[in-house]
Simulated scan of single mutants.
Amino acid sequence: MLFTIKSPKSERFFLQYFNGFRPHGKNKIEKLFKVGVSFVKALYKYFIKKTAQFLRLFGYLFIYTDKGMRAFKRLVVQKLIWSRGRLGRMVATATVMSIAFFVFLFGKVFNSSRFVNSQEINPIYLANVTDIIPQRNTALTVLPENRQRTEPIVYVVEGGDTLSDIGNKFKISVDALRYVNNLSDLAYLKVGQEVVIPPVAGLVHKVASGDSLQSIANKYDVPSQAIADFNYILDTSKLAVGTELVIPGAKVPEPIVIPSVPAQIRQGPAVDTSASKGWCMWPTTVRIISQYFSWYHNGLDIATPWGSSPPLFACAGGTVTRAGWDPWGLGLHVRIDHGNGYETVYGHMARIDVSYGERVSRGESIGTMGSTGRSTGPHIHFTINYKGTPQNPLNYIN
């Protein structure tokens, strides 16, 4: 009896083949290419799967965030409606405090940014380079021209000075200088004489008993607030007697003029003043006419360049009926009566060389040209009046 021994077959032993990872191909290049393609496919599937999971997670986050915000909004609205505005101040305070805390916490970060301010260059760096020239800026405070002085000053008259020259130098009108220094119409300046110069184009008023800010303002025709501001008056209801106040832009009060009529004026022979005779001569040495006679201008303006004071002459013989200051704009002026109803007037003079009641002859010097009174430059306002009515001087001048 023959026995044959065979290999036992047991289910515990098995052979598993990983054919999915085994490359197929005829050669190594083909096998390597197939392995690469398989890797790329697997990586693409993995990326698609993770992207889908991320988008799903982001969608859930957006949905729940929206629901949370809506729920918070409903809660706030319910609380505000339930409290009927009692929480309004609390909410506003919390908002403002939150903003202030944010600025306090992060303000330094924004302030140090280049978009907010430029960074300063280190001085040590500037000292070691030659292609950068540092620039230093100096801030100057310039006072306005009309506020450079707040106190009157005393000016000592020098040789050749006139009130017009002093006024032009300090930009003060001759009227103001005469009023402040109590100078009369016939007063002349002497070398070494002291003249008070107001600090502005105005006057200086010394407070007397009974004066008030409003009464002073009415007297000089200026706003009371301008006086208070310039003199730094805090209590406008009380003014100390004897205090000197600067009145900016003040007008010289018009004096009450009482004409003095002499007992007798020596009259000379009447001049032949017929228009055909040309009885009046040209009253000065310059022939620049800056303004002619018209219905709104009652005379002839004869001008001269700045810095010169040409002489003035009587255009015909006559008697001086006025020689002094005219408070209504002519400044220093002379009036001459030529008889037969004719009179000549010479205004804005710098100096007067004749006096009241004096007899003058044709061509005699009566003073010099100036810019006193209401004047914008050196000139003479020459007027011929016939029985008080202004005439065109060019009709009578030879």
Rank of each mutant, 00 (worst) to 15 (best):
V76L: 14
P23W: 03
H333E: 12
R74Q: 05
N117G: 11
H205D: 13
P248K: 07
A139S: 11
I256A: 04
N181A: 00
G278P: 09
S113W: 08
M1L: 12
N182S: 03
H338P: 15
V246T: 15
A92C: 04
R149W: 03
V257C: 04
T284W: 00
N218F: 15
Y60C: 15
P8C: 07
L183W: 01
L213T: 00
S355C: 07
L213S: 06
Y44G: 05
N27V: 07
R22L: 09
A139D: 10
G347R: 02
N298C: 01
G59Y: 10
D165Y: 11
Y125P: 01
K41R: 09
A228Y: 10
Q264H: 08
Y188P: 07
R12E: 14
D131K: 08
T304Q: 10
Y386G: 06
P8F: 04
T372Q: 09
S361M: 12
V116E: 09
D326I: 05
H348E: 04
L75T: 07
K190P: 03
A263Q: 06
D337M: 02
Y44F: 10
F72M: 13
N27A: 11
A176I: 04
S112A: 10
W295T: 11
T150K: 15
L15N: 14
C315T: 15
A250P: 11
V246R: 03
I258W: 01
L312C: 05
L394G: 06
E151V: 15
Y179G: 01
D211R: 00
E30T: 05
V191Y: 03
S209P: 00
P378C: 03
Y44I: 13
I289W: 02
S237K: 11
L55W: 09
Y396H: 12
F382V: 06
D211Q: 05
V191C: 01
T344S: 11
Y125T: 14
A270F: 03
F293Y: 15
D185F: 07
R351K: 12
G278N: 14
P8W: 04
K169R: 15
E343M: 11
R374L: 13
I366M: 00
G25Q: 07
S209K: 08
